[in-house]
């Protein structure tokens, strides 16, 4: 491993582009995504379906289907060039340096092994310890994610647990090997509200305790606000706005972010019309030229269609890709 300067970001993604090919069509899923993430920082990636947020995460873990997707650009995590990894290095990277939690915990678990066996197996592989130590670590982790009577749960099969418990077990599995980076793909979306908030608080607590970086992908503004330090808003495979949570939520600069916030239903607004964004997201197989949001944008002008707008810094690391900002500057 190459030595790193102390202030170097843990994650550095630049110009990440992902294409899927499907029967004569090319799906432009991710179109030049760049961002940095400092150690211990939590980035909330906010976007709707088709925005490329999940694909970005999957590209970072190198779990996209190799024969149908092409990934270009660079992804550096903890000094390693992720797209160049192969074989044993890649195995060590997945689960050792980086791990991922999903919306559906059953995807992480093999239904024929107990929770304890699976966590212990992962610990043994990545931390090179014996069976007993691995099991002890598994128990410690189940305790840590607040699973009641953890000792008994160690020998439970995934299907014997309730939704919230499974989600906790998946977090235990993901964090058992002390990863430097946790990728979270809508981990609370399928949960009930009262369970969701418990899992969010747990993740926040564990993140602080382990000092790890987290990339948290969600479609829910409220969830992003609860967990993230910084927010990146994605639309049609591009990051259209990024900045600290406060900046992005209180003074959104991109029309899409503004629309997303105004169309988020709040109960207090009863009796008023919601300011919805008209239209629907673009077809990723036939992307419009220039700004992908222009066809739905009330501020759109000719210039928007000419080229993809560059990022404009509006101060304090708050950036947005919109022509309006360039005109104002």
């Amino acid at each position: 491993m190459e030595p790193r300067a102390p202030d170097e970001p843990l994650v550095s993604v630049s110009d990440l582009t992902v294409r899927f090919s499907r029967t004569g069509q090319t799906i432009q899923a991710v179109n030049g995504v760049s961002f940095d993430l400092a150690p211990g920082e939590v980035l909330g990636v906010l976007g709707e379906s088709g925005s490329g947020k999940s694909v970005t995460l999957r590209a970072m873990l190198r779990i996209l289907p190799a024969h149908r997707s092409s990934v270009t650009g660079t992804i550096r995590v903890a000094g390693r060039d992720v797209l160049a990894l192969s074989g044993a290095e890649l195995e060590d990277y997945r689960g050792g340096t980086v791990s991922m939690i999903f919306q559906e915990p059953m995807l992480s678990f093999d239904p024929v092994f107990t929770i304890g066996q699976q966590i212990a197996e992962s610990v043994r592989r990545h931390m090179k310890v014996d069976q007993q130590a691995a099991r002890a670590r598994a128990l410690e982790m189940l305790d840590r994610v607040q699973i009641p009577s953890a000792k008994r749960r160690l020998d439970a099969y995934p299907h014997e647990m309730s939704g919230g418990m499974r989600q906790r077990a998946m977090i235990a599995l993901a964090l058992a090997c002390k990863p430097k980076l946790l990728l979270a793909d809508e981990p609370t979306t399928a949960l009930d509200a009262t369970v969701q908030i418990q899992i969010l608080l747990l993740l926040r607590e564990l993140q602080r305790e382990f000092g790890m970086s987290v990339i948290f992908v969600t479609h829910d503004v409220g969830v992003a606000i609860e967990v993230a330090d910084r927010i990146a808003v994605m639309y049609a495979g591009r990051i259209v706005e990024t900045g600290s949570v406060r900046e992005v939520i209180r003074t959104p600069r991109h029309p899409y972010t503004q629309g997303l916030l105004s169309s988020t239903v709040r109960g207090e607004l009863r009796g008023q019309r919601i300011e919805a964004i008209p239209g629907s997201p673009p077809d990723l197989a036939a992307m419009p030229p220039g700004c992908a949001f222009a066809p739905r944008c009330k501020h759109a002008r000719d210039e928007c269609l000419r080229a993809v707008p560059g990022a404009v810094d509006v101060g304090g690391g708050h950036e947005a890709r919109c022509v309006l900002l360039k005109l104002a500057a």
């Binding site: 009641p148 309730s162 939704g163 919230g164 418990m165 009930d192 509200a193 009262t194 369970v195 969701q196 908030i197 418990q198 969010l200 608080l201 829910d220 503004v221 409220g222 969830v223 606000i225 609860e226 949570v245 406060r246 939520i249 209180r250 709040r266």
Partner: peptide
Amino acid sequence: RALFSAMPSMDPDRRTQQPPLIGDP
């Protein structure tokens, strides 16, 4: 009341600190 407190606060300066309920329904 618990359902209400479980709703995300939508305010970065007033994040939820305590889960209103423990465990699953």
